[in-house]
Computed example of a mutant assay.
Amino acid sequence: MKRNSRLSSVLHALLHMAEQQGPVTSDALARCLGTNPVVVRRTMGYLREAGIVASDRGHAGGWRIQADLGAISLRQLHEALGEPALFAIGNRNESPDCLVEQTVNAALETAFAEAEALLRQRFSEITLADLAADFARRQAAAPARAELPR
């Protein structure tokens, strides 16, 4: 089953960007994420529309975080990405005639709604600053690694 990893990729990119002194190019982020620069530009465009990042043109240009890390929650990022489905599971048939399947759907829909509400609440409580602090702790405890390529 294919999973949507855009939120994970965005968090990865933003944490790398937070460690840089200046703008980071789409090419550098693409190398870091193992994807194409066009995918990076498209995804960062959503974040720019939400006021989370800004882009600078020209030779020294690139993407930079515009908002305070402590003010950016995972929920805001999820919403900026168009609120992709949180779960890759669902009902077999959305409008069944079978009463058994209607019963199953009702139970699953209730469970999905409760789980989604809980996950959205937790996403509201986690900020980029929280992730950056965890990264800093891990980085301090790990052997030296190469910086993000420019």
Rank of each mutant, 00 (worst) to 15 (best):
V104Q: 06
D130C: 14
R150T: 07
I52G: 00
K2L: 12
Q21L: 12
R145M: 10
A30N: 06
M44Y: 12
Q121T: 09
Q139N: 13
F123Q: 13
G90D: 05
S5Y: 09
V104W: 06
A136C: 01
V39T: 15
G22H: 13
P37D: 07
S95D: 13
R150F: 10
L118A: 13
E116A: 15
G61I: 00
S9Y: 01
G45V: 11
A67R: 15
D134S: 14
L148K: 06
L47P: 02
H59I: 02
E101R: 12
N36R: 13
M1Y: 07
V100D: 06
C32E: 15
P84K: 08
R57A: 15
F87Y: 13
R137C: 11
A115S: 12
S5Q: 12
L148P: 02
R138F: 13
A142G: 09
R6G: 00
Q121I: 01
L29P: 02
A111W: 09
A146R: 14
R3K: 11
H16M: 10
R137L: 14
G58Y: 02
Q20L: 01
A129Y: 03
E19V: 01
L7F: 01
E101A: 05
P149E: 13
L99Y: 07
F135R: 15
Q121C: 04
L77Y: 04
R138Y: 14
E114H: 05
P23M: 04
A80G: 08
A146E: 13
L119Q: 11
N105L: 10
D27W: 07
T43F: 06
E125A: 12
L81F: 03
A106C: 07
D56Q: 15
V100S: 05
V40A: 08
L77Q: 04
V24C: 14
D27I: 10
T35K: 02
P84V: 08
G90H: 03
R150I: 01
A140P: 05
L86S: 04
L47Q: 02
A71D: 15
A133N: 08
I52D: 00
R64L: 08
R3A: 11
Q139S: 15
L11K: 00
E125H: 06
L108R: 13
S55N: 04
E109C: 06
Q139R: 15
D134C: 13
T103R: 12
A113S: 11
G61E: 00
P143C: 06
L119F: 05
D56H: 12
L14G: 00
P149Y: 05
L74V: 04
T35M: 14
A132T: 03
G70R: 05
M44Q: 11
L86N: 03
A111D: 08
P37A: 07
I126H: 02
A133W: 07
L69I: 07
L118M: 10
D97Q: 11
E79P: 00
D68A: 15
L119D: 01
E101I: 09
H12A: 12
C98G: 05
